[in-house]
C-alpha cells in the first residue's frame, strides 16, 4: 500500500502534495523541470468567465519571510483554459483541480458549468478569497451568507466536488467554514493570502501598483495552522491546507493541524523542484515522528 495516498471527494491522491493555485500557472513551465505526474494533483491558476489582464505592475514585493502579490486574476478565460491548458494537463497522470473566480454569482456559475463539461477536471476550487480584484472574489469570502449562497449556486451549476477556498481576512474563520459546509461544500482549501501593503521608501508610495496585495510565504504559516486547527474541529469535510509550506516538516504540521492534503505556493518561486522534493522527503518525516501513513497523521495534533 502507498503510505502517502489520500482519498478526498473527487480526488484520489497518490500523495498529498500539490502546487497551489496562482503560483504554478497551468503547469507548463514547471514541466520543463520535472514530470508533473509525480504531483498529488494540480490546482490551476484561477479561471474567470472571460479573459482578464490583471493589475498594473509592479505586482510583487518581497517582505520579511514572504511576499506580497497583486496579480489581479490575469488569465485567458475559461474557454481558452479548457481548450489549451486542461487538454495539455490531461497528458499527465494527476487529478486537476480548477480554481474558479468571478465578479458575480452568474460568472462563477458559468465557469463552473464550463469545467463540468470537460472530462479531465476532477474538482473545483471556489475562489471567494482573492484580495486583489475590485469586484467579486473577497466580497464573497468575508460574509458567511454570501459565501454560502455562491457555494450553493456553484454546486448546482456543476456535478464536480467543490472545495471552497477561504480567506484569512475574517475575524471568525469557523463561521465561514461552517456556512459553506452547510451550503454543500465538499471540502475546504485554506488559507488564501492575507491582505498587506508595503511603502517604497525612495518614492514614498505603496510599492505595488494595486497598493495592497496578498501576503504569502513562510510568514503566514502560523496563521494557516491556527485556522485549520480551529476549523477542523467544527467541520466534517476535508481540508486542503496551504500557507507558507517549504519543508516536509511543514507538511506534517499541516496534517497534524487537520489538513488532509497540502498545497505549496510561494516556495515554487525559490525552488522549482520543491513539490517533488517534498514528496520524496515526506515518508522519512512521517516515520521520524511515528506515523506510517499520511492518513494516520491527519488531525493528530488536535488536543482538545
Amino acid at each position: 500500500m502507498n503510505n502517502l495516498a489520500v482519498d478526498l471527494p473527487g480526488l484520489q491522491l497518490k500523495n498529498p502534495i500539490m502546487p497551489a493555485s496562482g503560483c504554478f500557472g497551468f503547469g507548463r513551465e514547471y514541466s520543463e523541470f520535472y514530470d508533473l505526474s509525480k504531483l498529488g494533483a494540480i490546482m490551476m491558476k484561477a479561471a474567470t468567465g472571460s479573459e482578464r489582464f490583471g493589475n498594473a505592475t509592479p505586482r510583487v514585493a518581497e517582505t520579511a519571510s514572504g511576499m506580497l502579490n497583486a496579480i489581479g486574476l490575469q488569465n485567458p478565460g475559461v474557454e481558452s483554459i479548457i481548450e489549451t491548458e486542461v487538454s495539455y494537463l490531461a497528458n499527465y497522470e494527476l487529478p486537476i483541480i480548477a480554481n474558479i473566480a468571478g465578479s458575480s454569482i452568474e460568472e462563477y456559475e458559468k465557469v463552473a458549468a464550463a469545467f463540468n463539461e470537460t472530462d479531465h477536471v476532477h474538482a473545483l476550487e471556489l475562489n471567494i478569497s482573492c484580495p486583489n480584484v475590485k469586484e467579486g472574489g473577497i466580497q464573497f469570502g468575508t460574509d458567511p451568507k454570501m459565501a454560502a449562497n455562491v457555494t450553493e449556486r456553484v454546486k448546482k451549476a456543476s456535478n464536480l466536488p467543490v472545495y471552497v477556498k477561504l480567506s484569512p481576512n475574517v475575524s471568525d474563520i469557523v463561521a465561514m467554514a461552517t456556512a459553506v459546509e452547510a451550503a454543500g461544500a465538499d471540502g475546504l482549501s485554506m488559507i488564501n493570502t492575507l491582505t498587506g501593503m508595503q511603502i517604497h521608501l525612495p518614492s514614498k508610495r505603496p510599492l505595488l501598483a494595486n497598493q495592497t496585495g496578498g501576503l504569502s510565504g513562510a510568514a503566514i504559516k502560523p496563521v494557516a495552522i491556527r485556522m485549520i486547527y480551529e476549523v477542523k474541529q467544527q467541520v466534517s469535510i476535508p481540508i486542503i491546507g496551504m500557507g507558507g509550506i517549504t519543508t516536509s516538516e511543514d507538511v506534517l504540521e499541516f496534517l497534524l493541524a487537520g489538513a488532509s492534503a497540502v498545497a505549496v505556493g510561494t516556495a515554487n518561486f525559490q525552488n522549482p523542484f520543491i513539490c517533488p522534493e517534498l514528496i520524496d522527503a515526506l515518508p522519512h518525516t512521517l516515520k521520524k515522528y511515528g506515523f506510517n501513513t499520511v492518513q494516520d497523521a491527519i488531525g493528530k495534533g488536535i488536543t482538545v
Binding site: C23, F24, G25, E29, F53, R59, F269
Partner: peptide, 8 residues
C-alpha cells in the same frame, strides 16, 4: 519562469 504573471 513564466508561471506567476508578476512581470507582464
Amino acid at each position: 519562469v513564466g508561471a506567476c504573471f508578476a512581470c507582464v
